[in-house]
Deep mutational scan, measured.
Amino acid sequence: MFKRLMMVALLVIAPLSAATAADQTNPYKLMDEAAQKTFDRLKNEQPQIRANPDYLRTIVDQELLPYVQVKYAGALVLGQYYKSATPAQREAYFAAFREYLKQAYGQALAMYHGQTYQIAPEQPLGDKTIVPIRVTIIDPNGRPPVRLDFQWRKNSQTGNWQAYDMIAEGVSMITTKQNEWGTLLRTKGIDGLTAQLKSISQQKITLEEKK
């Protein structure tokens, strides 16, 4: 169930391209415009997507990853294993993690069937560096609404905000991946996880038929 919630949630996290980005210092504006741009692209490019579902990787690479804190999220997933990894191991892992996100997020976007969304009203940021933004996803086919909290983090150097995690039903996506990959990290280390991520990233994206 959580895996499905995570995939549905990713439908609204794909941010804007650099040329049309919203105010990078306001995570609420980023979330709002990102959702609108993403849904528009999914709707307008269905012919290309249906002809070649792996085209979704391109959308992810162009529109999402430049505005997601990939390395920060990847380091959180590694936890204690990050500090013990060599620079070469980290570089290989982050490259594999990025390719994994292209496949995983692309597969999530393949679930698009006309969903709509509501974003919580903007709250004062103050001096906060981590801000959760509640998004409610509404399914046109009558499924119950899904309420999610996207975690946005302020870059201490640039002042810009980027998304790095999502919490559904009190469970963090980062925590879920830590639990899912924990045994592999304990037995085969970061190299074993890197190899698995490379394998997963090679899987073809498949479209979910409308139910």
Rank of each mutant, 00 (worst) to 15 (best):
M1S: 00
M1Y: 00
F2T: 02
F2D: 00
F2R: 01
K3L: 05
M6C: 04
V8W: 15
V8R: 01
V8A: 12
A9Q: 03
A9C: 11
L10A: 05
L11N: 00
L11R: 01
L11T: 02
V12E: 01
P15V: 02
L16E: 05
S17K: 15
S17R: 12
A18N: 14
A18T: 14
A18M: 14
A18F: 14
A18G: 13
A19D: 01
T20Q: 09
A22I: 12
D23H: 11
D23L: 14
D23M: 09
Q24P: 15
Q24D: 13
Q24A: 09
T25L: 08
T25H: 10
N26A: 05
P27M: 06
P27G: 05
P27T: 06
Y28T: 10
Y28V: 06
Y28D: 06
Y28N: 12
K29H: 12
L30A: 07
L30T: 05
L30S: 07
M31E: 02
M31D: 01
D32G: 10
D32Q: 10
D32M: 10
D32R: 09
A34W: 14
A34C: 09
A35E: 04
A35D: 05
Q36V: 13
Q36R: 09
T38Y: 07
F39T: 02
F39Q: 01
D40A: 13
D40C: 12
R41D: 03
L42Q: 12
L42S: 07
K43L: 07
K43Q: 07
N44F: 07
N44P: 06
E45H: 06
E45R: 05
Q46P: 05
P47Y: 09
P47E: 07
P47A: 08
Q48P: 14
I49Q: 04
I49W: 03
R50L: 07
R50S: 09
R50A: 08
A51N: 13
A51G: 12
N52W: 06
N52Y: 09
N52E: 10
P53H: 15
D54K: 09
D54T: 14
D54A: 14
D54Q: 12
D54N: 15
Y55F: 14
L56D: 04
L56K: 04
L56W: 07
L56R: 05
L56H: 08
R57V: 15
R57T: 15
I59T: 08
V60C: 08
V60T: 14
D61W: 03
D61T: 07
Q62E: 13
Q62P: 04
Q62G: 13
E63P: 01
L64M: 05
L64K: 01
L64S: 01
L65H: 12
P66G: 10
P66R: 04
P66N: 09
Y67F: 09
V68D: 01
V68F: 06
V68R: 00
Q69T: 15
Q69H: 11
Q69R: 02
V70R: 05
V70H: 11
K71C: 01
K71H: 06
K71A: 04
Y72K: 01
Y72M: 01
Y72F: 05
Y72H: 03
A73D: 04
G74T: 01
A75Y: 00
A75C: 05
L76F: 05
L76D: 00
V77Q: 08
L78G: 01
L78C: 07
G79I: 00
Q80G: 07
Q80L: 08
Y81L: 05
Y81P: 03
Y81S: 10
Y81G: 10
Y82R: 01
K83S: 10
S84T: 11
S84D: 10
S84V: 11
A85Y: 06
A85E: 08
P87S: 11
A88F: 13
A88H: 14
A88D: 13
R90V: 03
E91A: 14
E91H: 09
A92I: 13
Y93H: 06
Y93K: 00
Y93I: 04
Y93D: 04
F94K: 12
F94M: 15
A95W: 07
F97P: 00
F97W: 09
F97V: 07
R98H: 11
R98F: 08
Y100M: 12
L101S: 14
L101R: 03
K102A: 14
K102R: 13
Q103W: 05
Q103R: 05
Q103Y: 07
Q103N: 15
Q103M: 15
A104E: 03
A104K: 01
Y105W: 09
G106S: 15
G106M: 04
A108P: 05
A108D: 01
A108E: 04
A108R: 11
L109V: 04
L109F: 03
L109N: 13
A110E: 14
A110D: 07
A110F: 05
M111A: 00
M111Y: 11
M111P: 04
M111I: 03
Y112S: 00
G114L: 04
Q115D: 04
Q115I: 03
Q115K: 01
T116M: 15
T116D: 15
Y117K: 04
Y117T: 05
Q118D: 13
Q118V: 14
I119D: 04
I119F: 08
P121K: 09
P121E: 13
P121S: 14
P121L: 09
E122C: 11
Q123N: 09
P124C: 12
L125R: 11
G126E: 12
G126M: 08
G126Y: 10
D127L: 11
D127P: 09
D127Q: 10
D127F: 14
K128L: 07
T129N: 10
T129P: 13
T129E: 13
I130H: 11
I130S: 01
V131I: 09
V131S: 10
I133L: 07
I133S: 02
I133N: 05
T136V: 11
I137D: 00
I138F: 13
I138A: 00
D139A: 00
D139C: 14
D139P: 13
D139R: 14
P140Q: 15
P140S: 14
P140C: 15
G142D: 06
G142I: 12
G142F: 07
G142A: 00
P145F: 11
P145C: 04
V146C: 01
V146Y: 11
V146Q: 06
V146D: 00
R147A: 00
R147F: 01
L148P: 04
L148M: 03
L148E: 09
L148V: 01
L148Y: 08
D149M: 04
D149I: 00
D149C: 04
D149G: 06
D149N: 03
D149Y: 04
F150V: 15
F150N: 03
F150I: 01
F150E: 11
F150P: 07
F150R: 04
Q151A: 04
W152M: 02
W152Q: 02
R153H: 00
R153D: 01
K154H: 06
K154I: 11
K154S: 10
K154M: 05
N155E: 00
N155T: 04
T158P: 07
G159V: 12
G159T: 12
W161D: 00
W161C: 00
W161R: 03
Q162N: 06
Q162V: 03
Q162D: 03
A163L: 10
A163Q: 13
A163R: 11
D165N: 03
D165F: 00
D165W: 02
D165M: 06
M166W: 08
I167T: 14
A168E: 09
E169G: 01
E169F: 00
G170M: 01
V171T: 00
S172A: 00
M173L: 15
M173Y: 03
M173Q: 00
I174M: 10
I174L: 12
T175M: 06
T175Q: 07
T176L: 00
T176F: 01
T176P: 00
T176E: 01
K177S: 08
Q178W: 07
Q178T: 07
Q178S: 07
N179E: 05
E180P: 02
W181M: 15
W181R: 15
W181A: 04
W181V: 11
G182T: 15
G182W: 11
G182E: 04
G182Q: 11
T183S: 11
T183G: 06
L184W: 07
L184T: 09
R186L: 04
R186E: 01
R186K: 02
K188Q: 07
K188G: 09
G189K: 03
G189D: 08
I190F: 14
I190W: 09
I190C: 06
G192E: 08
G192C: 15
G192S: 13
L193W: 11
L193E: 13
T194E: 05
T194P: 14
A195H: 13
A195I: 13
Q196F: 04
L197C: 05
K198G: 09
S199A: 02
S199F: 13
I200T: 11
I200K: 07
I200N: 08
I200S: 05
I200C: 07
S201V: 06
Q202Y: 15
Q203E: 13
Q203A: 05
Q203S: 09
K204S: 11
K204L: 08
K204T: 13
I205Q: 06
T206R: 11
L207N: 15
L207E: 13
L207T: 15
L207A: 03
E208D: 12
E209T: 13
K210N: 09
K211S: 13
K211V: 15
K211G: 12
